[in-house]
Write a protein that binds this DNA or RNA. Structure first.
Length: 576
DNA sequence: GCCGTTTTCGGCCCGACTGTTTTCAGTCG
């Protein structure tokens, strides 16, 4: 059973318990467990079968047993019992914004509302206002929420690449405004998360209202609230909602820390504060006993006051960073400026838009000392494939380029070779042998079993000509689920065969994801951060690859392409 | 239900906003 399915069962049970009036901390415990399970890079099924699920934070003996029950019988007895008590369609009603479990339970008990249809009818026939504490306004909000649900579905999360450029453009506009002092992008965009729900901008200003007005009047604003002293909110034409919060300079650090999140990180931070006799909020740090409040202009001072080293935004996910900061054991994260080359990109030979010469020029302009052109192999299946003859011509072409462009930069002849369903590659060894660098990726036959997919990739890792596995799980964020593959087993096989593995920086992929990348690094597997660029413009997707690497706690040393080409070659198993 | 450099029991983050109420519960981020 996939982690996502187990997490979904826990999350459902949390809602059922909540409807049943369980104490909130039990509900919270199940929600937290669901989050931990969903995020885990290792198989919860295997862990629970070994009785080791309790090794995860937030999972104790009770949940360990419930997971085993779920695996054995397909359901959790406690959930089955509650489902007999409350109709399954009641859970959907709790998804209406503004209606929590308490309210839904009352609607069920007092009005017999047990589905979204019942809810609509109750609101339309003005029965909700009969309940104590609820009024006509609630009916209006419910109907509006139901209408939104009907036309557009639940609010989608946007890719970081869709959000970050807008966030930076807006921040830049505000920075140029005469009334502005400091402006920073906060929230999940600052943490470089895979997806973002909205944009948070944090600012200080000599004239807050004027700065708010500048955002309201921005050409990207399709809708806008009122421009106030505390900030404002707009929605851009492509539907991204943007919150601007303006604060006095002396509390800028507190506000920035608070609105950078994540929620989990902030909760852990405040729990630590409580143990120190302190209370942390966006307004400052209060000494509980004396009631004295201290504000911090600089975010780093907030962490310092709590006895912590500064924590980079990418690490603020509640994955052990606070304990590491307390112990002085935070990793020195890899920086984009550490990157010395890109080992996965395409040219006009397959599906790219630029020639090798143009790609090389762009790579040099980025300060790289090497670039591998890795066009798709013969059986790619989407046209534009490269025959063995064409690939050998490419080898000559690359040699000629390097001969006529002496110096520090080296163009590398490579290929992104398809891994066929049986794990073989679709070029002969004699062809592969001529290449400087071989990426091997799965592009077809996704729907085989996890076992076969794992064997398929491991077979490719045994091939002496393969250097690196590309986009291992094949996911497209928000569009295509990763295919079933035992990442842990692939990591082990890669280490054994002295291969490398890629973080693909295409913002739709970010594959390996941060959880798996952290696992790979812990196993000692060298990671290559690549772009998979299809043109000179997308070589800049290194930003997203590095974001994932940093969120995976990777250091410069963990990332192979922070090395010179000569040093990098020492990491791989085959003869060069 | 989980967890432990105050605790194996008694705690478990903080504040804004909303809608309904004359002081607050519920919901959300």
């Amino acid at each position: 059973m996939r982690n996502a399915e187990i997490a979904e069962a826990m999350s459902e049970l949390a809602t059922l318990y909540e409807l049943d009036g369980a104490i909130r901390y039990r509900v919270l415990a199940y929600r937290e467990a669901a989050r931990v399970i969903r995020q885990s890079p290792v198989s919860i099924e295997e862990l629970a079968r070994d009785g080791r699920a309790t090794e995860l934070p937030g999972i104790g003996e009770t949940l360990q047993q419930k997971i085993v029950d779920l695996l054995d019988t397909g359901e959790i007895p406690a959930a089955a019992k509650l489902k007999a008590k409350y109709p399954a369609s009641l859970i959907e009603v709790t998804r209406i914004p503004g209606l929590g479990a308490k309210t839904v339970r009352r609607l069920y008990d007092e009005l017999g509302v047990s589905s979204l249809d019942d809810l609509r009818e109750a609101a339309e026939s003005e029965k909700i206002r009969d309940l104590k504490g609820l009024g006509a306004r609630v009916e209006e909000n419910v109907l509006a929420a139901l209408a939104r649900l009907g036309e557009e579905g639940p609010a989608e999360r946007l890719l970081l690449s869709e959000v970050l450029p807008i966030a930076e453009q807006l921040a830049e506009t505000l920075r140029e405004h005469p009334a502005s002092d400091q402006v920073t992008v906060a929230g999940s965009a600052r943490r470089m998360a895979e997806t973002c729900k909205d944009i948070d901008l944090i600012a200080t200003a000599s004239d807050p209202k004027a700065l708010s007005a500048a955002l309201v009047e921005h050409e990207l604003a399709a809708q806008a609230g009122t421009a106030g002293d505390a900030g404002t909110r707009i929605t851009t034409f492509n539907g991204v909602s943007v919150d601007l919060r303006i604060v006095a300079p002396d509390a800028y650090g507190n506000l920035l820390q608070h609105f950078t999140g994540s929620a989990k990180h902030n909760v852990e931070l405040r729990e630590r504060a409580v143990r120190m006799g302190l209370s942390v909020s966006e307004h400052g740090i209060t000494e509980v006993e004396s009631g004295d409040v201290v504000r911090y202009a600089d975010e780093a001072e907030v962490y310092e006051r709590l006895g912590l080293a500064y924590i980079e935004p990418e690490l603020r996910e509640g994955n052990g960073e606070i304990a590491a900061a307390a112990a002085g054991e935070l990793p020195g994260l890899v920086e984009i400026t550490d990157i010395r080359g890109d080992l996965h990109c395409h040219t006009t030979l397959s599906d790219g838009r630029n020639t090798p010469e143009e790609m090389a020029a762009a790579a040099r302009a980025r300060g790289y000392s090497y670039l591998a052109v890795t066009d798709h192999s013969a059986s790619h299946g989407f046209g534009n494939h490269v025959t063995p003859e064409a690939l050998l011509e490419r080898v000559e072409e690359v040699a000629a380029y390097n001969a006529s462009n002496p110096g520090r930069f080296r163009l590398l002849a490579g290929s992104e070779v398809n891994i066929l369903p049986d794990g073989s590659l679709d070029y002969e060894p004699a062809v592969l042998q001529r290449l400087d660098w071989v990426m091997a990726s799965v592009h077809t036959s996704f729907r085989i079993s996890e076992k076969r997919m794992t064997e398929r990739v491991i077979e490719a890792l045994r091939n002496p000509h393969v250097d690196c596995i590309g986009h291992l799980t094949g996911r497209l964020i928000g569009k295509r689920e990763p295919y079933g593959v035992d990442v842990g087993a692939v990591i082990d096989a890669a280490v054994q065969n002295r291969k490398l593995i890629e973080i693909n920086g295409n913002p739709n992929r970010r594959d390996l994801n941060e959880g798996y990348a952290r696992l790979a690094a812990q196993a000692g597997l060298p990671i290559v951060v690549n772009t998979d660029a299809q043109g000179v413009d997308t070589l800049s997707n290194m930003t997203y690859g590095i974001a994932t690497a940093r969120r995976a706690w990777l250091t410069k040393r963990d990332v192979a392409n922070t090395r010179s080409w000569r040093e990098l070659l020492k990491l791989r198993g085959r003869r060069s």
